[in-house]
């Protein structure tokens, strides 16, 4: 893999890492998500720096260019993250439904209690 491409990929990864931790320090993303993205970015960096070993693997699976192997690796990493986000969205949907129901039921209870108090005063 050309040195320029390696440098470019490393620069992108470092820029991305910096951005993740900037957002984490501003509390715009959760620490656990920042850790997950950091871990996966570091894995991509390691893959970029160890092209010699990756060449063996890419030859084994029949991919001619090591750079394509890295892109495939990145694509698989994104699939994993998307799947993890799907589970998070599903959990949040359930949580939001429960919260919505509880808010509505609490409002009803307040209304009933207010009505009872009003009736007693009369």
């Amino acid at each position: 893999m050309p040195k320029e491409l390696i440098l470019f990929l490393l620069f992108l990864c470092l820029f991305f890492l910096g951005n993740i931790w900037r957002l984490a320090s501003k509390k715009k993303i959760l620490l656990k998500h920042a850790l997950l993205w950091s871990l996966l970015t570091i894995l991509v960096m390691i893959a970029t720096l160890t092209t010699k070993y990756l060449k063996v693997l890419s030859d084994f699976v029949g991919i001619e260019e090591v750079s394509n192997m890295i892109f495939l690796f990145g694509f698989l990493v994104l699939l994993v993250i998307t799947f993890l986000l799907t589970t998070t969205v599903s959990k949040q949907k359930i949580a939001i439904s429960i919260l919505t129901q509880e808010v509505a039921l609490s409002n009803k209870r307040i209304e009933e209690l207010t009505h009872d108090q009003h009736s007693k005063k009369i």
């Binding site: 939001i96 439904s97 919505t100 129901q101 808010v103 509505a104 039921l105 409002n107 009803k108």
Partner: peptide, 23 residues
């Protein structure tokens, strides 16, 4: 009536009714 602040769909609405019945 009970008013849900957002649309939950038929299941969420009916379950709210069951919660009210239970309580």
């Amino acid at each position: 009536y009970i008013s849900l602040p957002t649309n939950l769909g038929i299941g969420g609405a009916v379950q709210t009714g069951y919660k009210y019945a239970y309580r």
